[in-house]
Design a protein around this nucleic acid. Structure first.
Length: 602
DNA sequence: TTCATTATGACTGTCTTC
DNA sequence: GAAGACAGTCATAATGAA
């Protein structure tokens, strides 16, 4: 490993805002109304308590009474989505020219996504026949789903692509959701306003209503740092006029839905329209991550500090089998992204195939919720086992509701008859895109593994965003990794095939530093890894020294602590001013220092 | 002292109902 | 449009065993 590096590779390209990447910039798209999704869409109401109401509900959709009654018997009264999917499936098979060749209906159930079509006219007149049970094996599940999706009104080619994209165990509704998302994305190239609706309003509101503390914080911070280090922060206050963030005021949700960011792998989407504020344009590139569902005003503040770039909100459920709603602020190009290969499984049954055998039909989950730092207690899983063992099969609705609530809350999976269990650490590693046993051994306890993994990046998601660096830096990159954790950024870049020339990693936890170093040695890295425990040690002098030594940093990446932002925290959800989450200001301090030093030196 | 286990709501956005 | 129900969330603190 060599500490000496040449400086030719890091600055051999032109820094331009995204709109200068070659393509003409289309005018900003008008904002989408909240429910402007193209294609079939609609809502499924909760099951009525009365059976007759339930029958009426589905009959109103055009299904025959016999068909509805049979579907309710199959699924129980409590699962209206499963009933509807069964109805759609039967209807489609009935109409399909290959219906007599198809296998018995294998009902898979969707998550709670609402993607059912408004226009059910095509499936409204099918009669449910007793012969339906005679479907023979022969046509694949894939064909059946394709048939259903076409019946729902989706184009066959899009349905076919979505089936491949979502994997063999994805339910029809989940696949429909995927098509829905793709259509939404394709119909309107996302602008920053689309990605962060009413951004301007929130910024204005936050700086007006609660802005005093934010403004004061910034002012105090800037004054303090100005004293510390000359005038590196003597820059103008954020310029809101740049980057199309101030145009118009809208109400509504802050977080876009679906949370797909500028693009998703293997989705046909128009090139997104993004204009970076001048102050945001590098070098270096930077990439900041934190929880999407932070308290009000947090992302506005983060964005204001990070050169007024609007966050790219992405849910990792589009990359793996678990939800992970995160916001990313970066100045990376957004064209020509590509995903890591192989593509991870998108359903929990596919990712953890051993659970399939025990997964009850009344558990509609196909994806897990956010992987957290804590797991369910043994007492809870025992309570669930006892409740199920003492119930009929299927259990009554009351028991199902109790079990489902706990399973969703704690991400429990089925490991035996009536037996649910939390994920094992190695399963979390796999779902998050880390190599097996990444956090195992080396003196780390099981509890600590859960904590470290729960705090980490989802590698496939981050790698997709970072993939644009591969062609820019064929000889590798110099990386400044802040709050590295267990090395999600390093693993992502390595898996992308981007050589890590010099890595300066800042991580407080000794355990996490050991994990990263262990991975570094195990993967035979030929670059140099410098780890630093305390972010405060990275002052201007030390950064200048490193920048001179390495020839500058190509990427400054990090996700500052979310402890005080996360909804799970019921004790100290204090926002950006919280003890840990205030370290965001160190991310900005260091990034701004690097920009200034590199601006002077290169 | 370390680690495992367990119990502990609040906040926010979305959906449903009226 | 308002009010209430519902669902999801990179967690913290107390306790006891080893």
């Amino acid at each position: 490993m060599d500490l000496i590096s040449d400086s030719d590779d890091g600055d051999g390209f032109q820094w331009e805002s995204d709109e200068d990447d070659g393509d003409a910039v289309p005018p900003p798209n008008p904002p989408l109304p909240p429910d402007s999704a193209a294609g079939p869409s609609g809502k499924v109401s909760e099951a009525s308590s009365s059976r007759s109401e339930l029958v009426s509900h589905f009959m109103a959709m055009g299904f025959s009474e016999d068909m509805v009654v049979k579907a309710i018997e199959e699924n129980g009264e409590g699962n209206s989505e499963a009933i509807l999917e069964t109805l759609l499936t039967h209807a489609a098979i009935e109409k399909s020219p290959v219906k007599r060749e198809q296998s018995p209906i294998d009902c898979t159930f969707s998550s709670d996504e609402d993607v059912l079509g408004d226009d059910l006219s095509d499936v409204s007149n099918f009669e449910y026949s007793s012969d339906d049970e005679d479907y023979t094996e022969g046509t694949s599940d894939k064909d059946r789903k394709l048939s259903v999706l076409v019946e729902m009104g989706f184009p066959a080619d899009e349905a076919f692509s979505a089936i491949n994209r979502c994997g063999p165990t994805a339910s029809v509704l989940e696949i429909a959701d995927s098509i829905h998302a793709a259509q939404l994305a394709a119909d309107s190239a996302p602008t920053e306003d689309d990605l962060f609706p009413n951004w301007s309003e929130n910024k204005a509101a936050s700086s007006y209503a609660c802005g005093s503390s934010v403004k004061n914080k910034r002012k105090l911070y800037e004054m303090k740092k100005m004293k510390e280090r000359g005038s590196f922060l003597d820059r103008k206050k954020p310029c809101f006029g740049q980057g199309n963030l101030d145009e118009g005021f809208r109400s509504g949700s802050t977080i876009p839905k679906p949370m797909i960011g500028f693009s998703l792998p293997n989705q046909k989407m128009k090139p997104a329209n993004r204009i970076l504020p001048e102050a945001a344009i590098g070098p270096p590139y930077f990439y900041y991550e934190n929880v999407a569902l932070a308290p009000k005003g947090v992302w506005e503040t983060i964005s204001r500090f990070l050169y007024d770039i609007a966050p790219e909100f992405v849910d990792s459920k589009f990359f793996c089998a678990a939800n992970r709603k995160r916001g990313y602020i970066h100045n990376l190009p957004i064209q020509n992204r590509f995903p890591l290969q192989p593509l991870p499984s998108r359903t929990v049954q596919e990712a953890l195939p051993m659970t399939k055998k025990w997964w009850p039909s009344w558990d509609p989950r196909t994806q897990l919720n956010c992987l957290q730092t804590c797991i369910a207690s043994a007492k809870l899983t025992e309570r669930i086992r006892t409740a199920l063992a003492n119930s009929d099969d299927p259990p009554p609705e009351r028991v199902q509701r109790f079990v489902m609530n706990e399973c969703k809350k704690w991400n429990l999976v089925w490991v035996g008859l009536h037996k649910v269990a939390p994920l094992e650490p190695d399963e979390m590693e796999m779902l998050l895109g880390f190599p097996r046993d990444h956090t195992r051994g080396g003196g780390i306890s099981r509890t600590e593994r859960y904590r470290s993994l729960g705090n980490s990046f989802q590698v496939d998601t981050v790698a997709y965003h970072l993939s644009v660096l591969k062609d820019m830096f064929p000889n590798g990159i110099n990386l400044l990794s802040l709050f590295s954790g267990i090395g999600g950024a390093e693993v992502a870049l390595h898996r992308l095939g981007i050589h890590l020339r010099n890595v300066v990693s800042v991580e407080l936890s000794e355990i996490n530093r050991n994990i990263l170093r262990g991975w570094w040695e195990q993967t035979n890295q030929t670059g140099t890894l410098i780890d630093i425990a305390d972010v405060q040690q990275l002052n201007g002098d030390r950064l200048e020294q490193m920048i001179n030594m390495f020839g500058g940093f190509d990427l400054v990446i990090g996700g500052s602590p979310c402890n005080n932002l996360a909804g799970s925290n019921r004790y100290s959800r204090d926002g950006l001013e919280g003890k840990e989450s205030a370290l965001f200001y160190d991310y900005f301090r260091i990034l701004d220092l690097v920009k200034n030093i590199m601006g002077k030196s290169f």
